[in-house]
Write a protein that binds this DNA or RNA. Structure first.
Lengths: 157, 157
DNA sequence: ATTTGACTTCGAGCGCGCTCTAAGTCCTAC
DNA sequence: GTAGGACTTAGAGCGCGCTCGAAGTCAAAT
Protein backbone atom coordinates (compact mmCIF):
# COMPACT_ATOMS: atom_id res chain seq x y z
CA UNK A 1 0.00 0.00 0.00
CA UNK A 2 1.40 3.32 -1.02
CA UNK A 3 1.40 6.35 1.23
CA UNK A 4 -1.29 7.88 -0.94
CA UNK A 5 -3.64 4.93 -0.68
CA UNK A 6 -3.05 4.72 3.06
CA UNK A 7 -4.06 8.35 3.35
CA UNK A 8 -7.05 7.59 1.28
CA UNK A 9 -8.18 4.71 3.35
CA UNK A 10 -8.00 7.01 6.33
CA UNK A 11 -10.05 9.60 4.48
CA UNK A 12 -12.55 7.02 3.36
CA UNK A 13 -13.01 5.76 6.88
CA UNK A 14 -13.61 9.30 8.09
CA UNK A 15 -16.77 9.46 5.99
CA UNK A 16 -19.29 7.80 8.20
CA UNK A 17 -22.68 6.75 7.04
CA UNK A 18 -21.20 5.63 3.77
CA UNK A 19 -22.84 2.35 3.06
CA UNK A 20 -21.18 0.86 0.06
CA UNK A 21 -22.79 -2.14 -1.53
CA UNK A 22 -20.65 -5.13 -2.45
CA UNK A 23 -19.34 -5.10 -5.97
CA UNK A 24 -21.21 -7.57 -8.08
CA UNK A 25 -19.36 -9.81 -10.50
CA UNK A 26 -21.34 -8.30 -13.36
CA UNK A 27 -20.39 -4.79 -12.42
CA UNK A 28 -16.71 -5.58 -12.22
CA UNK A 29 -16.89 -7.26 -15.59
CA UNK A 30 -18.80 -4.40 -17.11
CA UNK A 31 -16.11 -2.00 -16.01
CA UNK A 32 -13.49 -3.56 -18.25
CA UNK A 33 -13.04 -2.77 -21.89
CA UNK A 34 -13.69 -5.64 -24.25
CA UNK A 35 -10.72 -7.60 -25.51
CA UNK A 36 -9.66 -7.84 -29.10
CA UNK A 37 -10.13 -4.19 -29.94
CA UNK A 38 -7.62 -2.52 -32.20
CA UNK A 39 -5.18 -0.43 -30.18
CA UNK A 40 -6.05 2.65 -32.21
CA UNK A 41 -9.44 3.80 -33.35
CA UNK A 42 -10.73 6.49 -35.66
CA UNK A 43 -13.30 8.96 -34.43
CA UNK A 44 -16.12 7.24 -36.28
CA UNK A 45 -15.26 3.93 -34.67
CA UNK A 46 -15.25 5.48 -31.21
CA UNK A 47 -18.56 7.11 -32.02
CA UNK A 48 -20.06 3.79 -33.00
CA UNK A 49 -18.61 1.96 -30.00
CA UNK A 50 -19.65 4.49 -27.41
CA UNK A 51 -22.78 5.97 -28.90
CA UNK A 52 -21.25 9.43 -28.61
CA UNK A 53 -21.45 11.31 -31.90
CA UNK A 54 -18.27 12.36 -33.67
CA UNK A 55 -19.42 15.96 -33.29
CA UNK A 56 -19.62 15.50 -29.56
CA UNK A 57 -16.30 13.71 -29.39
CA UNK A 58 -14.65 16.67 -31.09
CA UNK A 59 -16.48 18.96 -28.71
CA UNK A 60 -15.17 16.96 -25.75
CA UNK A 61 -11.66 17.38 -27.02
CA UNK A 62 -12.12 21.10 -27.63
CA UNK A 63 -13.18 21.72 -24.07
CA UNK A 64 -10.25 19.76 -22.76
CA UNK A 65 -12.07 16.64 -21.64
CA UNK A 66 -10.13 14.09 -23.65
CA UNK A 67 -6.69 14.48 -25.13
CA UNK A 68 -6.52 12.70 -28.48
CA UNK A 69 -3.49 12.05 -30.66
CA UNK A 70 -3.20 12.60 -34.40
CA UNK A 71 -1.99 10.46 -37.26
CA UNK A 72 0.43 11.89 -39.86
CA UNK A 73 -2.53 13.21 -41.83
CA UNK A 74 -3.84 15.15 -38.84
CA UNK A 75 -6.70 12.82 -38.04
CA UNK A 76 -7.67 11.87 -34.52
CA UNK A 77 -6.37 8.58 -33.20
CA UNK A 78 -8.06 7.23 -30.08
CA UNK A 79 -5.86 4.83 -28.16
CA UNK A 80 -7.15 2.52 -25.46
CA UNK A 81 -6.68 5.22 -22.85
CA UNK A 82 -8.62 7.84 -24.77
CA UNK A 83 -11.39 5.35 -25.41
CA UNK A 84 -11.48 4.59 -21.71
CA UNK A 85 -11.87 8.24 -20.92
CA UNK A 86 -14.72 8.64 -23.34
CA UNK A 87 -16.55 5.71 -21.81
CA UNK A 88 -15.87 7.05 -18.36
CA UNK A 89 -17.23 10.45 -19.35
CA UNK A 90 -20.42 8.90 -20.65
CA UNK A 91 -20.86 7.08 -17.35
CA UNK A 92 -20.54 10.28 -15.37
CA UNK A 93 -22.69 12.23 -17.82
CA UNK A 94 -25.52 9.77 -17.59
CA UNK A 95 -25.61 10.42 -13.87
CA UNK A 96 -25.85 14.15 -14.67
CA UNK A 97 -22.44 15.12 -13.43
CA UNK A 98 -21.81 18.56 -14.95
CA UNK A 99 -19.07 18.66 -17.57
CA UNK A 100 -17.30 21.23 -15.44
CA UNK A 101 -16.91 18.66 -12.66
CA UNK A 102 -15.83 15.90 -15.01
CA UNK A 103 -13.19 18.25 -16.35
CA UNK A 104 -11.98 18.89 -12.83
CA UNK A 105 -11.91 15.20 -12.06
CA UNK A 106 -9.94 14.36 -15.17
CA UNK A 107 -7.54 17.21 -14.46
CA UNK A 108 -6.97 15.71 -11.01
CA UNK A 109 -6.32 12.32 -12.56
CA UNK A 110 -3.71 13.99 -14.74
CA UNK A 111 -1.96 15.27 -11.62
CA UNK A 112 -1.16 11.77 -10.46
CA UNK A 113 -1.49 9.95 -7.17
CA UNK A 114 -1.26 13.06 -5.01
CA UNK A 115 -4.71 14.10 -6.21
CA UNK A 116 -6.43 10.93 -5.11
CA UNK A 117 -7.99 12.42 -1.96
CA UNK A 118 -9.34 15.34 -3.96
CA UNK A 119 -10.79 12.94 -6.51
CA UNK A 120 -12.43 11.00 -3.77
CA UNK A 121 -13.97 14.12 -2.32
CA UNK A 122 -15.36 15.03 -5.72
CA UNK A 123 -16.80 11.56 -6.20
CA UNK A 124 -18.36 11.46 -2.77
CA UNK A 125 -20.02 14.81 -3.39
CA UNK A 126 -21.36 13.52 -6.67
CA UNK A 127 -22.54 10.37 -4.96
CA UNK A 128 -24.53 12.51 -2.57
CA UNK A 129 -26.16 14.37 -5.42
CA UNK A 130 -27.13 11.11 -7.09
CA UNK A 131 -28.66 9.82 -3.87
CA UNK A 132 -30.62 13.04 -3.44
CA UNK A 133 -31.84 12.83 -7.00
CA UNK A 134 -32.91 9.23 -6.50
CA UNK A 135 -34.96 10.26 -3.49
CA UNK A 136 -36.56 13.15 -5.37
CA UNK A 137 -37.47 10.90 -8.23
CA UNK A 138 -38.94 8.30 -5.93
CA UNK A 139 -41.09 10.96 -4.28
CA UNK A 140 -42.16 12.21 -7.71
CA UNK A 141 -43.01 8.68 -8.70
CA UNK A 142 -45.32 8.42 -5.71
CA UNK A 143 -47.11 11.57 -6.83
CA UNK A 144 -47.47 10.35 -10.39
CA UNK A 145 -48.75 7.01 -9.16
CA UNK A 146 -51.32 8.85 -7.13
CA UNK A 147 -52.37 10.76 -10.22
CA UNK A 148 -52.60 7.54 -12.14
CA UNK A 149 -54.69 5.67 -9.60
CA UNK A 150 -57.04 8.63 -9.36
CA UNK A 151 -57.37 8.50 -13.16
CA UNK A 152 -55.60 11.68 -13.99
CA UNK A 153 -58.00 13.84 -12.04
CA UNK A 154 -57.93 17.58 -11.92
CA UNK A 155 -54.77 19.50 -11.27
CA UNK A 156 -55.00 20.10 -7.60
CA UNK A 157 -51.50 19.32 -6.44
CA UNK B 1 -45.27 35.30 6.54
CA UNK B 2 -48.82 34.79 7.68
CA UNK B 3 -49.93 31.87 9.80
CA UNK B 4 -51.73 30.40 6.83
CA UNK B 5 -48.73 30.59 4.54
CA UNK B 6 -46.56 29.15 7.26
CA UNK B 7 -48.95 26.25 7.49
CA UNK B 8 -48.94 25.67 3.77
CA UNK B 9 -45.18 25.90 3.69
CA UNK B 10 -45.02 23.28 6.39
CA UNK B 11 -47.37 21.05 4.51
CA UNK B 12 -45.51 21.40 1.26
CA UNK B 13 -42.23 20.65 2.96
CA UNK B 14 -43.56 17.60 4.68
CA UNK B 15 -44.84 16.47 1.34
CA UNK B 16 -41.65 17.12 -0.57
CA UNK B 17 -39.66 15.71 2.30
CA UNK B 18 -38.71 12.59 0.48
CA UNK B 19 -39.14 8.99 1.44
CA UNK B 20 -42.88 8.85 0.92
CA UNK B 21 -44.32 5.41 0.43
CA UNK B 22 -46.74 5.28 -2.50
CA UNK B 23 -50.22 6.36 -1.52
CA UNK B 24 -49.48 6.76 2.14
CA UNK B 25 -52.02 8.43 4.33
CA UNK B 26 -49.76 11.46 4.54
CA UNK B 27 -49.50 11.73 0.79
CA UNK B 28 -53.23 11.61 0.26
CA UNK B 29 -53.70 14.21 2.96
CA UNK B 30 -50.99 16.41 1.56
CA UNK B 31 -52.63 16.46 -1.83
CA UNK B 32 -55.33 18.79 -0.58
CA UNK B 33 -54.57 22.43 -0.06
CA UNK B 34 -54.85 23.51 3.57
CA UNK B 35 -57.76 25.51 4.81
CA UNK B 36 -57.38 29.02 6.07
CA UNK B 37 -55.33 30.38 3.20
CA UNK B 38 -56.43 33.67 1.75
CA UNK B 39 -58.53 32.95 -1.30
CA UNK B 40 -56.40 35.30 -3.37
CA UNK B 41 -52.66 35.69 -3.37
CA UNK B 42 -50.24 38.15 -4.92
CA UNK B 43 -47.42 36.91 -7.08
CA UNK B 44 -44.85 37.51 -4.36
CA UNK B 45 -46.85 35.41 -1.94
CA UNK B 46 -47.11 32.57 -4.40
CA UNK B 47 -43.40 32.86 -5.01
CA UNK B 48 -42.65 32.61 -1.33
CA UNK B 49 -45.05 29.75 -0.79
CA UNK B 50 -43.95 27.64 -3.69
CA UNK B 51 -40.31 28.57 -4.02
CA UNK B 52 -40.92 29.50 -7.66
CA UNK B 53 -39.60 32.98 -8.43
CA UNK B 54 -41.98 35.72 -9.53
CA UNK B 55 -40.02 35.92 -12.77
CA UNK B 56 -40.67 32.25 -13.38
CA UNK B 57 -44.33 32.56 -12.40
CA UNK B 58 -44.77 35.27 -15.03
CA UNK B 59 -42.91 33.09 -17.48
CA UNK B 60 -45.25 30.19 -16.74
CA UNK B 61 -48.21 32.40 -17.45
CA UNK B 62 -46.68 33.73 -20.66
CA UNK B 63 -46.20 30.26 -22.07
CA UNK B 64 -49.77 29.34 -21.21
CA UNK B 65 -49.07 27.07 -18.26
CA UNK B 66 -51.20 28.86 -15.68
CA UNK B 67 -54.06 31.24 -16.28
CA UNK B 68 -54.01 34.01 -13.70
CA UNK B 69 -56.60 36.70 -13.04
CA UNK B 70 -55.99 40.40 -12.52
CA UNK B 71 -57.12 42.89 -9.91
CA UNK B 72 -58.51 46.30 -10.96
CA UNK B 73 -54.97 47.66 -10.98
CA UNK B 74 -53.82 45.00 -13.44
CA UNK B 75 -51.89 42.92 -10.93
CA UNK B 76 -51.93 39.16 -10.90
CA UNK B 77 -54.31 37.50 -8.48
CA UNK B 78 -53.69 33.81 -7.81
CA UNK B 79 -56.79 32.03 -6.60
CA UNK B 80 -56.78 28.61 -5.01
CA UNK B 81 -56.96 26.94 -8.37
CA UNK B 82 -54.03 28.85 -9.82
CA UNK B 83 -51.96 28.13 -6.72
CA UNK B 84 -52.80 24.47 -7.08
CA UNK B 85 -51.61 24.49 -10.65
CA UNK B 86 -48.34 26.11 -9.73
CA UNK B 87 -47.66 23.52 -7.04
CA UNK B 88 -48.63 20.78 -9.44
CA UNK B 89 -46.26 22.14 -12.07
CA UNK B 90 -43.38 22.18 -9.62
CA UNK B 91 -44.06 18.55 -8.78
CA UNK B 92 -43.94 17.52 -12.40
CA UNK B 93 -40.93 19.70 -13.11
CA UNK B 94 -38.93 18.15 -10.31
CA UNK B 95 -39.41 14.82 -11.99
CA UNK B 96 -38.06 16.36 -15.20
CA UNK B 97 -41.26 16.33 -17.14
CA UNK B 98 -40.68 18.73 -20.04
CA UNK B 99 -42.72 21.93 -19.90
CA UNK B 100 -44.15 20.98 -23.28
CA UNK B 101 -45.73 17.88 -21.76
CA UNK B 102 -47.00 19.71 -18.71
CA UNK B 103 -48.65 22.20 -21.03
CA UNK B 104 -50.30 19.37 -22.92
CA UNK B 105 -51.49 17.79 -19.71
CA UNK B 106 -52.98 21.01 -18.39
CA UNK B 107 -54.65 21.64 -21.73
CA UNK B 108 -56.25 18.19 -21.44
CA UNK B 109 -57.44 19.01 -17.96
CA UNK B 110 -59.07 22.11 -19.39
CA UNK B 111 -60.99 19.94 -21.84
CA UNK B 112 -62.88 18.22 -19.06
CA UNK B 113 -63.64 14.63 -18.25
CA UNK B 114 -63.48 13.41 -21.81
CA UNK B 115 -59.73 13.84 -21.77
CA UNK B 116 -59.12 11.56 -18.81
CA UNK B 117 -57.87 8.63 -20.90
CA UNK B 118 -55.45 10.91 -22.73
CA UNK B 119 -54.22 12.33 -19.43
CA UNK B 120 -53.71 8.86 -18.13
CA UNK B 121 -51.68 7.90 -21.19
CA UNK B 122 -49.48 10.95 -20.71
CA UNK B 123 -48.93 10.16 -17.06
CA UNK B 124 -48.15 6.52 -17.72
CA UNK B 125 -45.57 7.51 -20.30
CA UNK B 126 -44.03 9.91 -17.85
CA UNK B 127 -44.05 7.24 -15.19
CA UNK B 128 -42.08 5.00 -17.50
CA UNK B 129 -39.50 7.69 -18.05
CA UNK B 130 -39.12 8.20 -14.31
CA UNK B 131 -38.64 4.49 -13.76
CA UNK B 132 -36.03 4.36 -16.52
CA UNK B 133 -34.24 7.31 -15.03
CA UNK B 134 -34.27 5.69 -11.60
CA UNK B 135 -32.66 2.60 -13.05
CA UNK B 136 -30.02 4.62 -14.87
CA UNK B 137 -29.19 6.53 -11.74
CA UNK B 138 -28.95 3.36 -9.70
CA UNK B 139 -26.56 1.91 -12.26
CA UNK B 140 -24.54 5.11 -12.20
CA UNK B 141 -24.45 4.98 -8.43
CA UNK B 142 -22.98 1.50 -8.60
CA UNK B 143 -20.25 2.76 -10.91
CA UNK B 144 -19.47 5.71 -8.67
CA UNK B 145 -19.35 3.44 -5.66
CA UNK B 146 -16.93 1.25 -7.51
CA UNK B 147 -14.78 4.29 -8.18
CA UNK B 148 -14.95 5.20 -4.53
CA UNK B 149 -14.03 1.80 -3.20
CA UNK B 150 -11.14 1.58 -5.62
CA UNK B 151 -9.87 4.87 -4.24
CA UNK B 152 -10.67 7.11 -7.12
CA UNK B 153 -8.22 5.34 -9.36
CA UNK B 154 -7.47 6.12 -12.94
CA UNK B 155 -10.14 6.78 -15.49
CA UNK B 156 -10.56 3.44 -17.07
CA UNK B 157 -14.31 3.04 -17.29
C1' DA C 1 -46.60 66.20 -3.28
C1' DT C 2 -43.30 63.00 -3.48
C1' DT C 3 -41.02 58.99 -2.63
C1' DT C 4 -40.91 54.16 -2.10
C1' DG C 5 -41.55 49.72 -3.55
C1' DA C 6 -44.07 46.13 -5.48
C1' DC C 7 -45.94 45.38 -9.37
C1' DT C 8 -46.66 45.51 -14.87
C1' DT C 9 -45.03 44.37 -20.00
C1' DC C 10 -41.88 43.15 -23.46
C1' DG C 11 -37.86 41.53 -24.95
C1' DA C 12 -33.22 40.21 -24.54
C1' DG C 13 -29.68 37.32 -22.39
C1' DC C 14 -27.72 33.26 -20.23
C1' DG C 15 -25.82 28.58 -19.07
C1' DC C 16 -25.70 24.13 -20.49
C1' DG C 17 -24.66 20.57 -23.66
C1' DC C 18 -24.58 19.68 -27.57
C1' DT C 19 -25.36 20.01 -32.89
C1' DC C 20 -24.62 21.65 -37.19
C1' DT C 21 -22.48 24.33 -41.16
C1' DA C 22 -18.93 25.77 -44.22
C1' DA C 23 -14.80 25.48 -46.23
C1' DG C 24 -10.94 22.97 -46.75
C1' DT C 25 -7.63 18.57 -46.60
C1' DC C 26 -6.36 14.02 -47.43
C1' DC C 27 -6.60 9.11 -48.92
C1' DT C 28 -8.64 5.58 -51.87
C1' DA C 29 -10.83 3.71 -55.85
C1' DC C 30 -11.86 3.92 -60.38
C1' DG D 1 -6.60 12.61 -62.66
C1' DT D 2 -10.66 12.88 -60.62
C1' DA D 3 -14.56 11.71 -57.84
C1' DG D 4 -16.04 10.30 -53.37
C1' DG D 5 -16.01 10.11 -48.73
C1' DA D 6 -14.26 10.53 -44.23
C1' DC D 7 -11.95 13.52 -42.04
C1' DT D 8 -10.15 18.49 -40.37
C1' DT D 9 -11.00 23.42 -38.39
C1' DA D 10 -13.42 27.49 -36.50
C1' DG D 11 -17.41 29.19 -35.43
C1' DA D 12 -22.43 29.74 -35.38
C1' DG D 13 -26.92 27.95 -33.92
C1' DC D 14 -30.25 25.50 -31.11
C1' DG D 15 -33.50 23.82 -27.44
C1' DC D 16 -34.48 24.17 -22.88
C1' DG D 17 -35.76 26.58 -18.82
C1' DC D 18 -35.31 30.05 -16.91
C1' DT D 19 -33.40 34.91 -15.53
C1' DC D 20 -32.78 39.54 -15.96
C1' DG D 21 -33.26 44.47 -17.49
C1' DA D 22 -35.65 48.59 -18.83
C1' DA D 23 -39.25 51.44 -18.67
C1' DG D 24 -43.52 52.36 -16.97
C1' DT D 25 -47.86 52.13 -13.53
C1' DC D 26 -50.02 52.23 -9.27
C1' DA D 27 -51.10 52.62 -4.19
C1' DA D 28 -49.77 53.61 0.18
C1' DA D 29 -46.76 56.07 3.48
C1' DT D 30 -44.36 60.28 4.77
Amino acid sequence: MTAATARLRELLESFDGLDLPPLSEELVCALGLPEGLPAELAISEVAELTGVSAHTLRYYERIGLVGVGRDPGGRRVYDRDALGRVVFITRLRCSDMPIRDITRYLALVGQGEASVPARLTLMLAHRESIVRRLQELQAALAVIDYKIVTYGGDCAP
